[in-house]
Each structure stands twice: as C-alpha cells, then as structure tokens.
C-alpha cells in the first residue's frame, strides 16, 4: 500500500510541471507550427522532390521512374549548361567583389561630411529600388551600339569609337556585371555607411594623435570593425547571384548566342518551355549542391567551430 501511495505525489508533481510547460510553451509551439510546416513541406519537400525528379526521365509531366545519373551526364556535355556555369562564376566573383569595393568607396566618400549628403545617398541607393527587369531594359538601350552610348559618342564626332560589348559574345557577360554593379552598389553603400557611422569617434582621434594616415585607418582599423556589415552585404549579394535570371532575360535573353546564359535560366527554360523536367531539375540540383558546398564551410566556421571553442 505504502509503496503505492508514494509515487502518486511525484506523478502529480511531474504532471503539474508538465502542464506548466505545456501552458508556457504550447502557444509558442502553435505559433511556430505553420512556419515549421511550410519550411518542411514547401522548402524541404520541394527540394527533395526536385532531387528525386532529376533521376527520372520526366518530360512534360513528372514521372517516377529511375534512370540513374543519365540526366547529369547529359548536363555536363551540354554546351549551354557549361557556359551557364562559367558565367555564374564570372558574374558572382565580379559582382560581389565589385559591389563591395564600389559600395565601400561610395560609403567612405559620403562619410567625408560632403555637402548635400542626402541627395548623394538617394542617388546612389536609387538603382536598388528598381527591378532587375527595368535595370536590364535600361542598360540594354544604353549599351546598344545602334542606339546608346556608342552612337552618341560617334555622333559627337569620334567616328572610330566602339563599345559593342552587349553584342559581342566574348564581352556580353561583363555588361550584365556592369548593370548588376549599378543596381547593387547602392545597397552595399547603405549597409557599410551605417557601419561607418557606428565607428567610435575616439578611434579616429587616437589615430590622428598617432599620425596614422587616413587611408591606413580605413584599411587597418575601420574595415576590420565593419566585418559584420561586410558579411551581411555579401550574403545579400550572393543570393542575388544565385537567382540571377530576370536581369539576363531583360537585357540579352541569354545572347548573343548562348554567351550570357545562366543556370537559373537554363532551369526555367527546360522546366517550362522545353518540357524537360528531368534535365531542368538536374540543373537545379547542381545549383543546390553548389550553394551548399559554398555555404557549408562558412556555417561550420561560424557556428559549429565557434560553439566548440569555449568548451
């Protein structure tokens, strides 16, 4: 009998404690549930579904057979996909580094307490307010040899002036980079400017007392302090690189030839125009793997190793 009575209070205690836990955590759990479901079903689910489809021979409609790596071996002998992959690397490296450098210089420029700072800030940030489609069309007109820059300079009397990058297959991808830089530098500037404004005045005073030249303060003291802002800007710019699609469609349609094709456009065309779901999803899977491969070391360094260090 005794032994039976003893556990009762413990159970009751445990259950009240459990109830309290439920009472405090349940609303939070319920509030998070929809998001969790969306993440699981929509993101992870679709991702798995995409990967699964890349191993099939699906064309217009999904079909769940198994053809192994056949789509991948097709992909890597496909001129267009190889060009797309090269282009995204060129674009990614030049766009991210270019935006960071330009954005930093612009931010430093504005930080010199220039007059009419508000106007400059707005002007530099303005392109970011425009969609990639508008950006693409505007730059397409501007760079078109028969309509834009080249024609204007020639009309001014410089007959031999040539700037035909847009229609030159070897250079066309760099026009996309230029348009991207124009679009993205302002945002980088805004982020870095916010960082610059947060730098302690005393640091500047101390550096001045020590007679350190201004450029040296920027590169050796301010820039390291701005590291979190630089990381934020890089992440934002990197997402822009991965999803690069509308800028290319508006500006060159992937041309001349296949000179400015990018992976996202390859995926879209194969999924929706060419009734080739399998090849499209295979390309999408390669994009996913690439992004994960780039992100994994960073996540490891930032979160996993960082957590381990104190222990």
């Amino acid at each position: 009998m005794d032994s039976a009575t003893i556990p009762v209070p413990t159970v009751r205690a445990a259950s009240t404690q459990g109830r309290r836990l439920v009472r405090t955590r349940l609303p939070a759990a319920l509030a998070l549930l929809p998001t969790a479901l969306v993440v699981l079903v929509v993101y992870i689910g679709c991702m798995l579904w995409t990967v699964r489809l890349s191993f099939t021979s699906s064309t217009l409609l999904p079909k769940l057979d198994w053809v192994g790596l056949a789509q991948y071996s097709r992909l890597f002998v496909n001129d267009r996909f190889v060009t797309s992959a090269e282009n995204i690397v060129i674009f990614g490296v030049l766009f991210i580094s270019g935006c960071l450098i330009l954005g930093f210089l612009l931010a430093v420029f504005i930080d010199q307490n220039v007059r009419a700072e508000g106007i400059f800030r707005t002007v530099f940030l303005y392109p970011y307010a425009m969609s990639f489609v508008v950006t693409g069309v505007a730059w397409q007109w501007f760079l078109n040899p028969g309509l834009g820059l080249q024609k204007v300079v020639r009309d001014l009397g410089f007959e031999s002036f040539t700037f035909d990058w847009l229609v030159n297959p070897d250079m066309a991808i760099y026009t996309i980079v230029i348009a991207g830089l124009w679009h993205g530098s302002g945002l980088t500037m805004a982020i870095l400017l916010a960082g610059l404004r947060g730098v302690d005045e005393d640091l500047w005073k101390a550096a001045k007392v020590d007679g350190v030249p201004t450029w040296r303060v920027y590169t050796s003291i301010v820039l390291p302090l701005l590291r979190p802002m630089v990381v934020t800007a890089t992440v934002l710019l990197a997402t822009g690189v991965v999803k690069l699609y509308d800028l290319v469609v508006a500006m060159t349609m992937g041309g001349p030839g296949i000179a400015t094709e990018v992976p996202a456009k390859f995926v879209m065309d194969h999924l929706f125009e060419r009734n080739n779901i399998a090849l499209g999803t295979a390309a999408a899977t390669i994009m996913l793997i690439t992004v994960v491969a780039v992100l994994a070391p960073w996540v490891y360094a930032r979160y996993i190793r960082a957590q381990r260090r104190p222990a």
Binding site: Q140, P145, L147, V167, G255
Partner: peptide, 10 residues
C-alpha cells in the same frame, strides 16, 4: 550573318 546589321543581337 554578314547581311545582318550589328545591332541585331537581342
């Protein structure tokens, strides 16, 4: 190709 003007691409 030679019969098309240079502004053709795009």
């Amino acid at each position: 190709r030679a019969l098309v003007d240079p502004g053709s691409p795009g």
